[in-house]
Design a protein around this nucleic acid. Structure first.
Lengths: 193, 193
DNA sequence: ACCTGAACACCGTTCAAGT
DNA sequence: ACCTGAACACCGTTCAAGT
């Protein structure tokens, strides 16, 4: 890669980060290019699609979340780890709006695949919570992501911010817990139907 | 209202219904006007904002859902009524994509206020389920709507359709149920913490 | 009183022409 | 090999001019 190309790419990313931070993930690509001082064609050369740009912009945050998942995996109990990580994901999704779509949408980006990374991190936490915790076994990683991003999407459309979103997430996570498991004292199977 | 104005309004609505049905709620307003055979200014005169147009387009479906709520209110048990209605709302939201946003967003439209209508229908079902059923008392109507539309928004971004969405909704509704209530046999308070 | 449609400032995207 | 930026076909929205 030529040196000026590399420099352009870098500068585009920095600019995109700033513009997206204040205008959201639907920010105009032309404007990002303009603020970066390059032609629109240059932006398209480096990031052929908006998703590609968003993936690059959010890469480090996704990596942070993945590291956090690893940490929780070894230091926290199965169900609690899943809960805590969900809250982290939600917080990030609310802060930089586009991340939820970056996580949900599938196109494997050349270079860095946000979705694959998140999916892998989530799989570890979820399957452990299902194996050793009290988490329902009839939800897969896709389900789990959709539930969390669903809360994020809905909450980002209305005021109330993280506080409200946290409450909604708590309800959702309660639904994720299996009522037919983990019973020790005085619990009888079949009480629910 | 002049007779040609009324005719134009009618024709715009019919066209909008068709175009939105096949292109989704983000369909071009100019194109709707074009297909209706009027200038864009005429569309804006009748429907000053996209939300206003969507509200008019979805009015009858909202009214159907409200009637259904009334029906469930008098013919079905509190918790089941809430579940069934949620599924109806979800199905409608998935079919005509924009309805979820029409429901969530607040601007009181002159003429017909989708959000107010839905909110009123939901309040009846939810408060009854909280009073006489086993539904958590720490969620309000706004929370309830955000959860349902959240599932709809997330599910509409990925394939899988109503079947998948239904599964996600089931998880969410499970979270809506209060574990500390409705117990008759062998249940001890405080078992969960 | 209502409709009209040209016009404006934007958008995403492409591609011949440059260096 | 990479950048450039004019150009294209669109978008939402407005508003003077018509009837």
């Amino acid at each position: 890669m030529r040196v000026d190309a590399r420099r352009n790419r870098e500068h585009l990313l920095t600019t995109a980060r700033a513009v997206i931070a204040e205008q959201g993930p639907e920010a105009s690509l032309n404007e990002i290019a303009r603020q970066a001082g390059v032609g629109p064609g240059t932006l398209y050369r480096h990031f052929p699609t908006r998703q590609a740009l968003l993936a690059a912009v959010f890469q480090d945050r996704v990596e942070t979340l993945c590291a956090r998942a690893d940490d929780l995996l070894t230091h926290t109990s199965p169900d609690e780890a899943l809960d805590l990580w969900s809250r982290d994901v939600l917080a990030h999704a609310l802060t930089d709006g586009g991340m939820s779509t970056s996580m949900t949408r599938d196109p494997a980006e050349p270079g860095f695949d946000c979705h694959a990374a998140m999916r892998s991190a989530a799989t570890g936490l979820l399957s452990r919570a299902q194996r050793e915790g009290r988490t329902r076994r009839d939800v897969d990683v896709e389900d789990f992501f959709q539930l969390v991003t669903g809360v994020a999407l809905a909450a980002s459309e209305l005021p109330g911010g993280l506080e409200r979103a946290d409450h909604l997430l708590a309800v959702t996570l309660a639904g994720l817990r299996d009522r037919d498991r983990g019973g020790t004292a005085g619990w009888r199977s079949g009480a629910d139907g």
